[in-house]
Design a protein around this nucleic acid. Structure first.
Lengths: 168, 168
DNA sequence: GCGAAATGCGACAGTGGTGTCGCAGAATGA
DNA sequence: TCATTCTGCGACACCACTGTCGCATTTCGC
């Protein structure tokens, strides 16, 4: 059901619960049994998607910041609709307790600053822009890999565009 | 009213007509007098925004493709909410007669190919990705210039990220 | 095969947005 | 000043979505 919600809401967040139930091949009743509210489904999907995003980078040895960013980018593109759901509208979850904008954001900014220290990001580029670019590329690559390009190709292009786009 | 609609719908396309009327400081009745339908308002805003986008590049002498792209980017960022409205959801206007996806798209692809011929775009980058990147940067710069960075700074950064992101 | 749990179906009231009206008051211009 | 036009207000029916039920049916584990 979460997958169905992601794939539907990735394209149209105003889509009804009937649509999602249909996509999930369950009745609307069943959907309501697992998620009492529309809000409950949103929260569950948000939480699940964030958890997946978080779980991307454990287990590996600490690497350079720019490499870590790359890995995030590739793994994020792999998530497809989940990522589109999360990032297609920057203020979709504004009031949501599970979505503190500075949640992963602060961590991301720190990572970006480390990348700058490593010389992978030009000093004159504001952290805000680098982060914005990162998410824009992540979203775009996920989006385009639903249509025109194979997923890994899109990921490669996003990585390349990011590296060069922020390089000194 | 179109401005109000753009500024509201740029952030939440599911926002009601009451919200837009309020933002425009007119009554809902008046709004309905000018635009019978919700759809009519959408179409009017779409048409107007597209027209503005088109009218960006006339009058100037023919320049290099990459320079033309830059100018489009800068001018687009200047449009702010209109651009966000147009591009925040890539398939928002899918069935709309005024939105032939290959409308400006074909022109944009041709421009991108010219830029590749000029050596400004790496040959191994698919046109699709270059175009996607262009619109992602346009959207992001417009978005970020509503929050953190001055408009022209955001435009500069977008231009820089684009040039380097696609350069050979 | 049997009982428990999960699912589907249809119906229901509540809700918020939508589109339409008529009427009253304000604004405009001759 | 007067007539025309524009605007705001409130009311209305309509509709799609939502959330909740009860009940019948299926599925699953034993």
């Amino acid at each position: 059901m979460l997958d169905a919600a992601a794939s539907v809401w990735a394209r149209d967040f105003s889509a009804s619960l009937s649509t999602i139930a249909e996509r999930a091949e369950v009745s609307r009743s069943t959907l309501h049994r697992y998620f009492t509210d529309r809000q409950a489904l949103i929260d569950a999907l948000l939480l699940d998607s964030l958890a997946r995003l978080e779980s991307l980078d454990d287990g590996s040895a600490p690497a350079s910041a720019i490499y870590t960013l790359e890995q995030h980018l590739r793994a994020g593109v792999e998530m497809g609709d989940r990522v589109i759901f999360l990032f297609s509208d920057p203020n979709r979850f504004d009031g949501n307790p599970h979505w503190s904008a500075d949640d992963g954001d602060e961590e991301m900014r720190a990572l970006m600053d480390r990348a700058r220290d490593e010389g992978a990001v030009a000093p004159e580029i504001p952290t805000t822009w680098a982060v914005t670019l990162f998410y824009a590329l992540l979203y775009s690559a996920a989006e385009v890999s639903n249509q025109d390009l194979p997923r890994h190709v899109a990921a490669d292009l996003a990585v390349q565009s990011f590296r060069r786009g922020v390089a000194p």
